[in-house]
Design a protein around this nucleic acid. Structure first.
Lengths: 219, 219
DNA sequence: AATTGTTAGTGTAATATATACACTTACATG
DNA sequence: CATGTAAGTGTATATATTACACTAACAATT
């Protein structure tokens, strides 16, 4: 057994939010080679004495100003040639930003960060398009077997807001009454008591999670 | 941005099979430091110009002689301190060996490989106990939403064999008639036409997968 | 040849879950 | 006060899941 090869380990984060009723992904414009000037997932190299989750959270904050959001490991990508420099293994994450927090803070590095509609992405650096497809599939699947959708909404929201999240991500329109029955039967929401007047129509009741930030696995 | 840190990347594989109606895990005795003499998951370092899946398959074959089995990426583990040498990120895999193929081939390195009952494991090197718990949870969950159980059985098997796999891994005893109804409704099995005489009782019909090796996601 | 022990194999009724479907309510606007 | 818009609500049907007990086919024993 000869000496093991050395690698750089990166984390790359597929960051989703919902803006103007469209699924959006946060990308940054690369400032240096390789793929200089191309759009890419936010991310960066793992430091000595740093955990993977920690690295993902740090890079996300540094590059985009986004912090305190839902973050989950997606999988690792290590095909030789995925980075033209070679020797880079990427641990991919996916993150969900609430719809009321997608304003991009002007963190030092964040100048080059921008939201893109998931359906209208530019050409991406590295294998980031592949990572995004995997992330999207995971997000779609998790809507059905977890309460992850709340991570895309403000602390208080209407059931119509929630249904919209499902419609946007899954691309299908559930029956309104059945959807509401299903959600309320999960027993994770409570009425705030307030109502939101949003236009020339009946105001909607506001709900919040009974235990905010708790992801429940369903079924 | 300073120069990124360098790491060694390892793959570690949680290999499951069923032996004598008990869930077993394949471990190797470490021949060198750190954790020399301890039991550990098979695995090893990623080579230059090698993909992660490729590395896992290669290490598994080299260290245990096991090849051609179901292999799936589980997740990555990179806590600082998980390896006392530091600077090692592990990409964990899980593998399933059919019950008729668990004889350990005498590959050069495989001398130190042994099956252990999952319920009676020795103390493990690194964070391999943690990896095994994650792998076990994934296996258990996947029984319910995929046809992965067939990967633990020979090409031809009885419905009782199959039910036993579920009982062993999930630790619960489904009703025989309901289980058979459920399995057959998946429409992935066909009768071989043969029957297996196994003792002083009625012989059992043999089944095989309609499309062997195809994992179907259920639901 | 008959008896015993053992696992394979089978159906139906009850309950729970999921689906389909249409009208009334409460507001803002003109 | 008439109009337009999205919020909010219930019931009937279909589908899926669960509970449950006996007969069939063999080997081994007498």
């Amino acid at each position: 057994m000869s000496k093991p090869a050395s690698f750089h380990v990166a984390t790359d984060i597929a960051v989703f939010t919902i803006r103007a009723d469209v699924l959006n992904v946060l990308l940054i414009e690369r400032a240096s080679q390789p793929f200089k000037g191309n759009w890419a997932l936010p991310g960066g190299f793992l430091n000595e004495n740093e955990g993977l989750d920690q690295c993902a959270a740090r890079e996300l904050a540094e590059e985009t100003g986004v912090r305190g959001v839902y973050l989950e490991q997606l999988g690792s990508f290590g095909d030789p040639g995925r980075d033209p420099r070679g020797g880079v293994v990427s641990v991919a994450y996916f993150a969900l930003v609430p719809a009321d927090e997608h304003a991009l803070l002007a963190s030092t590095d964040a100048a080059s960060a921008r939201w893109f509609a998931f359906d209208d992405l530019p050409k991406l650096a590295f294998d980031h398009d592949k990572i995004l497809q995997v992330a999207h599939a995971r997000l779609k699947a998790k809507l059905d077997y977890s309460t992850i959708a709340f991570c895309l909404l403000p602390a208080e929201f209407t059931l119509s807001n929630l249904q919209m999240v499902y419609e946007i991500i899954k691309g299908e329109t559930p029956d309104k009454r059945n959807f509401r029955k299903w959600v309320l039967a999960l027993d994770v929401l409570e009425e705030t008591g307030d109502r939101r007047v949003e236009g020339a129509h009946r105001p909607a009741m506001l709900y919040r999670e009974k235990t905010p930030g708790t992801i429940k696995i369903i079924r």
